[in-house]
Design a protein around this nucleic acid. Structure first.
Length: 333
DNA sequence: AAACTAGTCAACCGCTAGTCA
DNA sequence: GTGACTAGCGGTTGACTAGTT
Protein backbone atom coordinates (compact mmCIF):
# COMPACT_ATOMS: atom_id res chain seq x y z
CA UNK A 1 0.00 0.00 0.00
CA UNK A 2 1.32 3.36 -0.94
CA UNK A 3 1.77 5.49 2.03
CA UNK A 4 -0.48 8.51 2.08
CA UNK A 5 1.39 11.71 2.68
CA UNK A 6 0.39 13.33 5.91
CA UNK A 7 -0.35 16.54 4.13
CA UNK A 8 -0.36 17.91 0.66
CA UNK A 9 3.06 18.55 -0.68
CA UNK A 10 2.10 22.00 -1.63
CA UNK A 11 4.41 24.91 -1.41
CA UNK A 12 3.39 27.54 1.03
CA UNK A 13 2.44 25.24 3.85
CA UNK A 14 3.96 26.81 6.87
CA UNK A 15 6.05 24.97 9.40
CA UNK A 16 7.56 25.88 12.70
CA UNK A 17 6.28 27.94 15.56
CA UNK A 18 2.70 29.07 15.52
CA UNK A 19 1.82 32.75 15.59
CA UNK A 20 -0.94 34.18 17.82
CA UNK A 21 -2.95 34.90 14.69
CA UNK A 22 -2.78 31.28 13.61
CA UNK A 23 -3.73 30.16 17.09
CA UNK A 24 -6.70 32.49 17.04
CA UNK A 25 -7.88 31.14 13.72
CA UNK A 26 -7.58 27.58 14.88
CA UNK A 27 -9.32 28.21 18.20
CA UNK A 28 -12.13 30.08 16.49
CA UNK A 29 -12.66 27.35 13.99
CA UNK A 30 -12.63 24.53 16.51
CA UNK A 31 -14.94 26.44 18.82
CA UNK A 32 -17.40 26.85 15.99
CA UNK A 33 -17.15 23.47 14.33
CA UNK A 34 -15.69 21.20 16.95
CA UNK A 35 -12.69 18.90 16.74
CA UNK A 36 -12.16 16.55 13.86
CA UNK A 37 -11.82 16.79 10.15
CA UNK A 38 -8.24 17.84 10.55
CA UNK A 39 -7.33 17.19 6.97
CA UNK A 40 -9.71 19.78 5.63
CA UNK A 41 -9.60 22.08 8.60
CA UNK A 42 -6.64 24.24 7.54
CA UNK A 43 -8.25 25.28 4.31
CA UNK A 44 -11.58 25.98 5.95
CA UNK A 45 -9.96 27.87 8.79
CA UNK A 46 -7.70 29.83 6.50
CA UNK A 47 -4.52 28.33 7.79
CA UNK A 48 -1.50 27.46 5.71
CA UNK A 49 -0.70 24.45 7.84
CA UNK A 50 -1.17 20.76 7.38
CA UNK A 51 -4.01 19.16 9.28
CA UNK A 52 -1.68 17.14 11.35
CA UNK A 53 0.06 20.24 12.57
CA UNK A 54 -3.29 21.80 13.44
CA UNK A 55 -4.41 18.79 15.38
CA UNK A 56 -1.17 18.71 17.32
CA UNK A 57 -1.28 22.41 18.06
CA UNK A 58 -4.79 22.08 19.36
CA UNK A 59 -4.18 18.93 21.34
CA UNK A 60 -0.95 20.03 22.94
CA UNK A 61 -1.41 23.70 23.42
CA UNK A 62 -4.74 25.31 22.58
CA UNK A 63 -7.22 22.92 24.14
CA UNK A 64 -9.02 24.79 26.92
CA UNK A 65 -8.68 22.02 29.47
CA UNK A 66 -4.94 21.89 29.35
CA UNK A 67 -3.24 22.48 32.64
CA UNK A 68 0.01 24.31 32.31
CA UNK A 69 2.81 25.02 34.69
CA UNK A 70 4.98 22.99 36.96
CA UNK A 71 4.18 19.38 37.61
CA UNK A 72 3.15 18.77 41.19
CA UNK A 73 4.69 16.08 43.33
CA UNK A 74 1.49 14.08 43.09
CA UNK A 75 1.56 14.33 39.34
CA UNK A 76 5.14 13.14 39.26
CA UNK A 77 4.23 10.21 41.47
CA UNK A 78 1.42 9.38 39.12
CA UNK A 79 3.71 9.60 36.13
CA UNK A 80 6.21 7.24 37.71
CA UNK A 81 3.51 4.79 38.72
CA UNK A 82 1.91 4.88 35.33
CA UNK A 83 5.23 4.63 33.57
CA UNK A 84 5.95 1.51 35.57
CA UNK A 85 2.71 0.10 34.24
CA UNK A 86 2.66 1.36 30.69
CA UNK A 87 6.26 2.05 29.81
CA UNK A 88 6.65 4.75 27.20
CA UNK A 89 2.96 4.77 26.40
CA UNK A 90 2.68 8.47 26.90
CA UNK A 91 -0.88 8.71 25.74
CA UNK A 92 -1.92 6.06 28.25
CA UNK A 93 -0.05 7.88 30.96
CA UNK A 94 -1.63 11.17 29.95
CA UNK A 95 -5.08 9.66 30.39
CA UNK A 96 -4.25 9.32 34.04
CA UNK A 97 -3.31 12.94 34.42
CA UNK A 98 -6.20 15.18 33.44
CA UNK A 99 -5.08 18.37 31.81
CA UNK A 100 -1.64 17.12 30.89
CA UNK A 101 -0.73 16.15 27.37
CA UNK A 102 1.24 13.14 26.32
CA UNK A 103 3.83 15.41 24.78
CA UNK A 104 4.22 17.42 27.95
CA UNK A 105 4.54 14.31 30.08
CA UNK A 106 7.02 12.80 27.67
CA UNK A 107 9.13 15.93 27.76
CA UNK A 108 8.93 16.16 31.51
CA UNK A 109 9.91 12.54 31.86
CA UNK A 110 12.89 12.87 29.57
CA UNK A 111 14.14 16.13 30.97
CA UNK A 112 13.39 15.80 34.65
CA UNK A 113 12.10 12.55 36.06
CA UNK A 114 14.31 10.24 34.07
CA UNK A 115 17.46 12.04 35.10
CA UNK A 116 16.40 12.25 38.68
CA UNK A 117 15.60 8.56 38.84
CA UNK A 118 19.00 7.73 37.43
CA UNK A 119 20.58 10.05 39.93
CA UNK A 120 18.72 8.25 42.69
CA UNK A 121 19.96 4.93 41.39
CA UNK A 122 16.75 3.77 39.78
CA UNK A 123 16.59 2.45 36.27
CA UNK A 124 13.94 4.57 34.54
CA UNK A 125 13.14 1.75 32.15
CA UNK A 126 12.76 -1.18 34.53
CA UNK A 127 12.05 0.90 37.63
CA UNK A 128 14.47 -1.28 39.51
CA UNK A 129 17.50 -0.29 41.44
CA UNK A 130 20.60 0.21 39.37
CA UNK A 131 22.75 -0.53 42.35
CA UNK A 132 21.64 -4.00 43.32
CA UNK A 133 19.61 -6.26 41.18
CA UNK A 134 16.68 -6.98 43.43
CA UNK A 135 15.10 -9.16 40.85
CA UNK A 136 17.33 -11.94 42.04
CA UNK A 137 15.47 -11.92 45.28
CA UNK A 138 12.08 -11.79 43.75
CA UNK A 139 10.01 -14.76 42.82
CA UNK A 140 10.20 -15.59 39.20
CA UNK A 141 7.25 -14.37 37.25
CA UNK A 142 6.16 -16.59 34.42
CA UNK A 143 6.51 -14.90 31.09
CA UNK A 144 3.12 -16.03 30.00
CA UNK A 145 1.08 -15.70 33.08
CA UNK A 146 -1.34 -18.55 32.84
CA UNK A 147 -0.86 -20.19 36.17
CA UNK A 148 -2.15 -19.32 39.56
CA UNK A 149 0.51 -18.15 41.91
CA UNK A 150 0.03 -16.11 45.00
CA UNK A 151 3.11 -14.65 46.52
CA UNK A 152 3.16 -12.44 49.52
CA UNK A 153 5.99 -10.08 49.14
CA UNK A 154 7.10 -9.01 52.54
CA UNK A 155 10.39 -10.34 53.69
CA UNK A 156 9.44 -10.74 57.29
CA UNK A 157 8.07 -13.78 58.97
CA UNK A 158 4.80 -12.17 59.78
CA UNK A 159 3.94 -11.78 56.19
CA UNK A 160 5.16 -15.25 55.41
CA UNK A 161 2.79 -16.45 58.02
CA UNK A 162 0.03 -14.63 56.24
CA UNK A 163 0.74 -16.66 53.17
CA UNK A 164 0.28 -19.87 55.01
CA UNK A 165 -2.95 -18.70 56.52
CA UNK A 166 -4.28 -16.69 53.72
CA UNK A 167 -7.54 -18.52 53.72
CA UNK A 168 -8.21 -17.24 57.18
CA UNK A 169 -6.90 -13.75 56.63
CA UNK A 170 -9.53 -11.62 55.09
CA UNK A 171 -7.04 -9.26 53.54
CA UNK A 172 -5.21 -11.97 51.72
CA UNK A 173 -8.34 -13.70 50.73
CA UNK A 174 -9.44 -10.41 49.44
CA UNK A 175 -6.25 -10.07 47.51
CA UNK A 176 -6.72 -13.37 45.78
CA UNK A 177 -10.34 -12.80 45.25
CA UNK A 178 -9.86 -9.35 43.84
CA UNK A 179 -7.42 -10.78 41.42
CA UNK A 180 -10.04 -13.25 40.36
CA UNK A 181 -12.57 -10.51 39.99
CA UNK A 182 -10.11 -8.45 38.03
CA UNK A 183 -9.31 -11.33 35.74
CA UNK A 184 -12.89 -12.31 35.42
CA UNK A 185 -14.08 -8.88 34.42
CA UNK A 186 -10.95 -7.49 32.93
CA UNK A 187 -12.35 -7.71 29.45
CA UNK A 188 -15.43 -5.78 30.34
CA UNK A 189 -14.37 -3.04 32.62
CA UNK A 190 -11.62 -0.57 32.35
CA UNK A 191 -8.68 0.01 34.57
CA UNK A 192 -10.17 2.86 36.51
CA UNK A 193 -13.11 0.72 37.43
CA UNK A 194 -10.84 -2.04 38.61
CA UNK A 195 -8.84 0.47 40.53
CA UNK A 196 -12.00 1.56 42.20
CA UNK A 197 -12.74 -2.00 43.22
CA UNK A 198 -9.29 -2.32 44.57
CA UNK A 199 -9.90 0.92 46.31
CA UNK A 200 -6.91 1.59 48.45
CA UNK A 201 -4.42 1.71 45.66
CA UNK A 202 -4.37 1.48 41.94
CA UNK A 203 -1.91 2.97 39.56
CA UNK A 204 -2.82 6.46 40.50
CA UNK A 205 -2.44 6.04 44.18
CA UNK A 206 -0.35 8.64 45.84
CA UNK A 207 0.02 6.54 48.93
CA UNK A 208 3.57 5.68 49.67
CA UNK A 209 4.21 2.37 51.26
CA UNK A 210 6.51 1.25 53.95
CA UNK A 211 8.90 -1.53 53.22
CA UNK A 212 6.77 -3.92 55.19
CA UNK A 213 3.84 -3.27 52.99
CA UNK A 214 2.73 -6.04 50.77
CA UNK A 215 1.97 -5.04 47.28
CA UNK A 216 0.14 -7.30 44.99
CA UNK A 217 -0.26 -6.87 41.31
CA UNK A 218 -3.20 -7.98 39.29
CA UNK A 219 -2.44 -8.66 35.71
CA UNK A 220 -5.32 -8.85 33.33
CA UNK A 221 -4.51 -10.21 29.97
CA UNK A 222 -6.60 -9.22 27.05
CA UNK A 223 -6.46 -8.84 23.36
CA UNK A 224 -5.64 -5.22 23.44
CA UNK A 225 -4.42 -2.60 25.81
CA UNK A 226 -6.39 0.13 24.19
CA UNK A 227 -8.27 1.41 27.16
CA UNK A 228 -10.85 3.79 25.89
CA UNK A 229 -12.41 5.08 28.99
CA UNK A 230 -11.14 6.69 32.10
CA UNK A 231 -14.47 7.64 33.51
CA UNK A 232 -14.88 7.43 37.21
CA UNK A 233 -17.25 4.79 38.46
CA UNK A 234 -18.23 4.65 42.11
CA UNK A 235 -17.29 1.38 43.65
CA UNK A 236 -20.75 0.91 45.07
CA UNK A 237 -22.25 1.23 41.62
CA UNK A 238 -19.94 -1.38 40.30
CA UNK A 239 -20.58 -3.74 43.15
CA UNK A 240 -24.29 -3.35 42.70
CA UNK A 241 -23.88 -4.06 39.05
CA UNK A 242 -21.91 -7.15 39.81
CA UNK A 243 -24.17 -8.66 42.38
CA UNK A 244 -27.66 -7.89 41.24
CA UNK A 245 -29.49 -11.19 41.24
CA UNK A 246 -26.18 -12.92 41.29
CA UNK A 247 -25.78 -12.35 37.60
CA UNK A 248 -23.40 -10.24 35.69
CA UNK A 249 -24.98 -7.10 34.54
CA UNK A 250 -23.37 -4.80 32.13
CA UNK A 251 -24.36 -1.22 32.06
CA UNK A 252 -22.68 1.05 29.57
CA UNK A 253 -22.12 3.55 32.30
CA UNK A 254 -20.32 1.05 34.42
CA UNK A 255 -18.77 -1.52 32.19
CA UNK A 256 -16.94 -0.62 29.10
CA UNK A 257 -15.94 -2.85 26.29
CA UNK A 258 -12.44 -1.57 26.74
CA UNK A 259 -10.03 -4.28 27.54
CA UNK A 260 -7.28 -4.12 30.01
CA UNK A 261 -3.73 -5.26 29.90
CA UNK A 262 -2.26 -3.51 32.82
CA UNK A 263 -0.97 -4.42 36.19
CA UNK A 264 -3.27 -3.15 38.83
CA UNK A 265 -1.80 -2.61 42.18
CA UNK A 266 -3.02 -2.17 45.66
CA UNK A 267 -1.44 -2.05 49.01
CA UNK A 268 -2.20 -4.87 51.34
CA UNK A 269 -0.33 -4.06 54.50
CA UNK A 270 -0.85 -4.87 58.10
CA UNK A 271 -3.17 -1.95 58.63
CA UNK A 272 -5.20 -2.89 55.69
CA UNK A 273 -6.40 -6.35 56.39
CA UNK A 274 -9.91 -7.19 55.52
CA UNK A 275 -12.03 -6.48 52.57
CA UNK A 276 -13.65 -3.63 54.42
CA UNK A 277 -10.53 -1.60 54.00
CA UNK A 278 -10.88 -1.68 50.27
CA UNK A 279 -14.23 -0.01 50.39
CA UNK A 280 -15.38 3.33 51.62
CA UNK A 281 -18.35 4.13 53.81
CA UNK A 282 -20.68 4.56 50.90
CA UNK A 283 -19.76 1.17 49.62
CA UNK A 284 -20.59 -0.38 52.92
CA UNK A 285 -23.90 1.37 53.14
CA UNK A 286 -24.94 -0.84 50.30
CA UNK A 287 -23.67 -3.89 52.12
CA UNK A 288 -25.29 -2.93 55.39
CA UNK A 289 -28.59 -2.34 53.73
CA UNK A 290 -28.57 -5.85 52.47
CA UNK A 291 -27.38 -7.17 55.84
CA UNK A 292 -24.38 -8.76 54.30
CA UNK A 293 -21.20 -8.71 56.30
CA UNK A 294 -17.77 -8.89 54.80
CA UNK A 295 -17.57 -12.62 54.81
CA UNK A 296 -20.97 -13.00 53.32
CA UNK A 297 -20.14 -10.46 50.74
CA UNK A 298 -17.04 -12.37 49.75
CA UNK A 299 -19.07 -15.55 49.56
CA UNK A 300 -21.62 -13.82 47.47
CA UNK A 301 -19.02 -12.65 45.03
CA UNK A 302 -17.41 -16.07 45.00
CA UNK A 303 -20.72 -17.69 44.28
CA UNK A 304 -21.32 -15.16 41.61
CA UNK A 305 -18.09 -16.07 39.93
CA UNK A 306 -18.79 -19.75 40.17
CA UNK A 307 -22.23 -19.38 38.75
CA UNK A 308 -21.11 -17.30 35.90
CA UNK A 309 -19.68 -20.21 33.99
CA UNK A 310 -20.31 -19.00 30.51
CA UNK A 311 -17.11 -17.11 30.36
CA UNK A 312 -14.07 -19.33 30.66
CA UNK A 313 -11.51 -16.69 31.30
CA UNK A 314 -8.62 -18.17 33.15
CA UNK A 315 -7.60 -16.84 36.49
CA UNK A 316 -4.30 -15.17 36.14
CA UNK A 317 -1.54 -15.16 38.69
CA UNK A 318 -1.00 -12.78 41.48
CA UNK A 319 2.58 -11.88 41.91
CA UNK A 320 4.71 -9.46 43.69
CA UNK A 321 5.31 -6.13 42.18
CA UNK A 322 6.82 -3.62 44.52
CA UNK A 323 9.57 -2.13 42.46
CA UNK A 324 7.63 0.80 41.20
CA UNK A 325 6.63 1.67 44.70
CA UNK A 326 10.24 1.67 45.71
CA UNK A 327 11.30 3.80 42.83
CA UNK A 328 8.79 6.45 43.81
CA UNK A 329 10.11 6.40 47.33
CA UNK A 330 13.61 6.69 45.98
CA UNK A 331 12.60 9.46 43.66
CA UNK A 332 11.23 11.65 46.38
CA UNK A 333 13.80 10.64 48.95
C1' DA B 1 30.46 41.15 25.23
C1' DA B 2 30.87 37.18 22.57
C1' DA B 3 31.10 32.34 22.10
C1' DC B 4 29.91 28.12 23.71
C1' DT B 5 27.15 24.57 26.13
C1' DA B 6 23.27 22.42 28.14
C1' DG B 7 18.45 22.24 29.12
C1' DT B 8 13.76 22.71 27.71
C1' DC B 9 9.82 21.96 25.04
C1' DA B 10 6.92 22.89 20.87
C1' DA B 11 6.62 20.94 16.65
C1' DC B 12 7.66 17.60 13.23
C1' DC B 13 8.21 12.94 11.17
C1' DG B 14 7.31 8.26 10.39
C1' DC B 15 4.52 4.82 11.47
C1' DT B 16 0.30 2.09 12.83
C1' DA B 17 -4.51 1.12 13.64
C1' DG B 18 -9.19 1.88 12.65
C1' DT B 19 -12.84 2.98 9.46
C1' DC B 20 -15.15 3.06 5.28
C1' DA B 21 -16.23 2.55 0.41
C1' DG C 1 -10.24 -8.43 0.60
C1' DT C 2 -8.16 -4.14 -0.74
C1' DG C 3 -6.81 0.43 -0.71
C1' DA C 4 -7.63 5.25 0.60
C1' DC C 5 -8.21 8.12 4.22
C1' DT C 6 -8.00 9.76 8.98
C1' DA C 7 -6.59 10.06 13.69
C1' DG C 8 -3.40 9.19 16.94
C1' DC C 9 1.00 7.65 18.92
C1' DG C 10 5.99 7.69 20.11
C1' DG C 11 10.56 9.13 18.81
C1' DT C 12 13.22 12.83 17.23
C1' DT C 13 14.50 17.44 15.93
C1' DG C 14 15.57 22.06 16.30
C1' DA C 15 14.61 26.72 18.00
C1' DC C 16 14.97 29.15 21.94
C1' DT C 17 16.77 30.34 26.50
C1' DA C 18 19.75 30.42 30.43
C1' DG C 19 23.99 29.59 32.31
C1' DT C 20 28.99 29.32 31.89
C1' DT C 21 33.51 30.33 30.14
Amino acid sequence: MVRTPCCKAELGLKKGAWTPEEDQKLVSYVNCHGEGGWRTLPEKAGLKRCGKSCRLRWANYLRPDIKRGEFTEDEERSIISLHALHGNKWAAIARGLPGRTDNEIKNHWNTHIKKRLIKKGVDPVTHKSLISDKSENLPEIPEKQNVIQTIITSDDDLDNEKVKNNNEKPGLSSAKFLNRVANRFGKRINQSVLSEIIGSGGPLTTTTTSHTATTTSVTVNSESDKSTSSSFTPTSDLLCQMTVNGNATSSPSTFSEASVNDSLMYCDNEDNLGFSNFLNDEDFMMLEESSVDNTEFMKELSRFLEEDVNDDVEVMPVYEHQDNIEDIDNYFA
